[in-house]
Design a protein around this nucleic acid. Structure first.
Length: 597
DNA sequence: GCCGTTTTCGGCCCGACTGTTTTCAGTCG
């Protein structure tokens, strides 16, 4: 079982235990362990195989270790069987509805015998939900809306699409009177590949009326399809695209605390607060406060401020981190994957020096009109020159990918002439001649060895037979990695965000093999792919597998995809030294030449 | 169910909103 599957099983168990009415702190213990598992970069199976005790993992004790062990060994959980004997399994699904948690789900089940979404919908329409104690007519209506929303809008929005959607709104907000500063927080700021909704923060100096006016201005912005709510501190709207956007208006004294709080991740925030608590501090979106002991509080004025404790930070994010003994942590790292430990000031903070756009010297994956690209070799060269690259590679598709007009050996040789012409026209850039070669179903490559030996660069790619099972798919790719001419495995899992899941493949085995055969893995920077995932990039870094960030541009404008790619690379903790395309021309030539001809 | 710089018991992240109440439980981010 994969870590995700194990986390999924434990989450379902925790949901059901919660509905069953288990000790809330026991539930929290499950969630803590799940969070740890979700943050792991190594497979739990590998940890067990290496003989390391699972109880070394934070939040994992004796019981949790045994649950995980059971799942790994048998794929089942005996405790789950016990719980589902009492609580219907489908009930956990109801808690996914907005406004329905474990308590309400339990009540609906016990009192109305409601288990499924359909049954709940009927009960809400018939009026029996509104008649329940603790529920009312509004609750019933809210449940119906939530059911509708769950059915209608499940998906997440790609970050780049979200950026485009909110750009006019941000411009509109910037012109609102009293707005001193604007920042997009949430997963958007953390550079996630997709976002659920967008959180915008606005710093406004002034009274409640001034803040309320900014919220009202926000609700009248461009593209607003629906106003969900609007008050003095917060407004919620839905854009025409269906993207939900929240605005929060804040005074300067808590700007940094709010920015930190609303940037998240939730897991990161929980960890920071737990840490603060151990130091006698309280962290909230309003600031960092020293917790006074109860007696001292009683002797002070009974004002709200006194009971809140002394504010020691809040205006900037840096001072919030500093107040809890941490260096400022870049938002891309805030996933509770070890960044808090790395930021400990008294442990000489050793946060990674993340790869930056200025480090990039070139791009090793792009297409031209020879296969399915929109621009010529010459035009791509011009585009790369404008980006200031030292080098780049032309890598059209190989012959078997006929839908993309893949190149036969003869056409590849003909293309060499055109590349030579471009090289002559652009002497300041080194142009490499490569190919994105298909990995065939049996793991062999789509071009004869003599052709592969004639190229500067060989990228290996899966474009077909996504239907193979994990064992077969993995074996197929491992065979390709073992070919002595392959420099990199590109878009290694084949996912298309929001459209196609990764094909089943053992990424851990692929990374280990890549290390063994000295093959780089690609981070495909196309915002629809962003493949590899950041967690796998982190793992590649751990294993010492080289990463190459490529745009896979099919037209000149797509060369700009390097930016979203680098954001994801940063989320994988990659530094310039881990990324192949930060190398200067000489070093890159040596890197290419290491694969014996 | 986990954990320990007040350690083997007694704690466990924080604040706000909503709808239902008449002082609060449940839910959310």
């Amino acid at each position: 079982m994969t870590n995700a599957e194990i986390a999924g099983s434990l989450t379902e168990l925790a949901d059901l235990l919660e509905i069953q009415g288990a000790n809330p702190f026991r539930i929290r213990a499950y969630r803590n362990a799940i969070r740890t598992i979700q943050g792991l970069t190594r497979p739990l199976s590998a940890i067990v195989d290496d003989g390391e005790p699972l109880t070394d993992l934070p939040g994992v004790g004796k019981d949790m270790a045994s649950h995980i062990g059971e799942l790994l060994a048998t794929g089942r959980l005996s405790l789950m069987d016990e719980v589902t004997a009492e609580v219907p399994r489908e009930l956990a699904r109801l808690t996914r509805l907005d406004g329905v948690g474990p308590k309400k789900a339990r009540k609906l089940w016990k009192e109305l015998d409601v288990v499924t979404l359909e049954e709940l919908e009927q009960a809400a329409k018939s009026g029996s939900v509104a008649g329940l104690e603790g529920f009312g007519e509004k609750s019933a209506q809210k449940i119906l809306r939530a059911i509708d929303a769950l059915r209608r809008h499940q998906g997440r929005t790609r970050r780049r699409d979200a950026a485009a959607a909110i750009a006019p709104l941000l411009e509109h907000l910037a012109s609102a009177p009293g707005v001193e500063e604007l920042e997009v927080a949430g997963s958007f700021r953390r550079g996630s590949d997709t976002v659920g909704d967008v959180d915008i923060l606005a710093r406004v100096e002034g009274d409640a009326a001034a803040r309320g006016a900014v919220v009202e201005h926000f609700t009248k912005g461009p593209g607003v399809a629906e106003i969900v709510g609007a008050g003095d501190t917060k407004g919620s709207i839905v854009l025409d695209s269906g993207l939900a956007v929240d605005l929060r208006v804040l005074p300067g004294e808590s700007w940094g605390a709010a920015l930190h709080y609303f940037t998240g991740s939730k897991e990161h925030n929980v960890e920071v607060r737990r840490r603060a608590q151990q130091q006698g501090l309280r962290v909230s979106e309003y600031g960092v406060f020293r917790v006074g002991d109860a007696e001292a509080d009683a002797t002070e004025d009974a004002t709200e401020e006194a009971s809140e404790g002394e504010r020691i930070a809040g205006a900037t994010e840096s001072e919030v981190f500093e107040a809890v003994g941490l260096a400022w942590i870049p938002p891309v790292l805030r996933e509770n994957r070890g960044e808090i430990q790395a930021a400990e000031l008294n442990g000489a903070a050793d946060l990674p020096d993340l790869v930056r756009p200025g480090d990039i010297r070139g791009d090793l994956h792009m297409h031209t009109t020879w296969s399915d690209g929109k621009n010529s070799v010459m035009e791509m060269a011009e585009g790369c020159r404008e980006l200031g690259y030292a080098w780049f590679a032309i890598t059209d598709h190989s012959q078997s990918l006929t839908v993309a007009n893949g190149l036969t050996p003869a056409r590849l040789r003909a293309q060499a002439l055109e590349i030579a012409e471009a090289q002559a026209a652009f002497p300041e850039i080194r142009i490499f001649r490569g190919c994105e070669v298909d990995i065939l179903k049996d793991g062999t490559l789509d071009l004869p060895d003599d052709m592969l030996e004639d190229l500067d660069l060989v990228l290996a790619a899966v474009h077909t037979h996504f239907e193979l099972d994990q064992a077969a798919q993995t074996e197929r790719v491992l065979k390709a990695l073992a070919h002595p001419r392959v420099h990199a495995l590109v878009h290694p899992t084949g996912r298309l965000l929001g459209r196609r899941d990764p094909y089943p493949i053992d990424v851990e085995a692929v990374l280990v093999a890549a290390r063994e055969h000295d093959v780089a893995v690609e981070l495909n920077a196309n915002p629809r792919r962003l493949d590899l995932h950041d967690r796998h990039l982190f793992r590649a870094r751990e294993l010492g597998v080289e990463v190459v960030v490529n745009t896979d541009a099919h037209q000149v404008s797509q060369l700009e995809f390097m930016a979203p790619g680098l954001l994801q690379a940063q989320r994988g903790w990659l530094e310039a030294g881990h990324v192949v395309n930060t190398r200067e021309t000489d070093a890159l030539e040596a890197w290419l030449a290491r694969k014996a001809r």
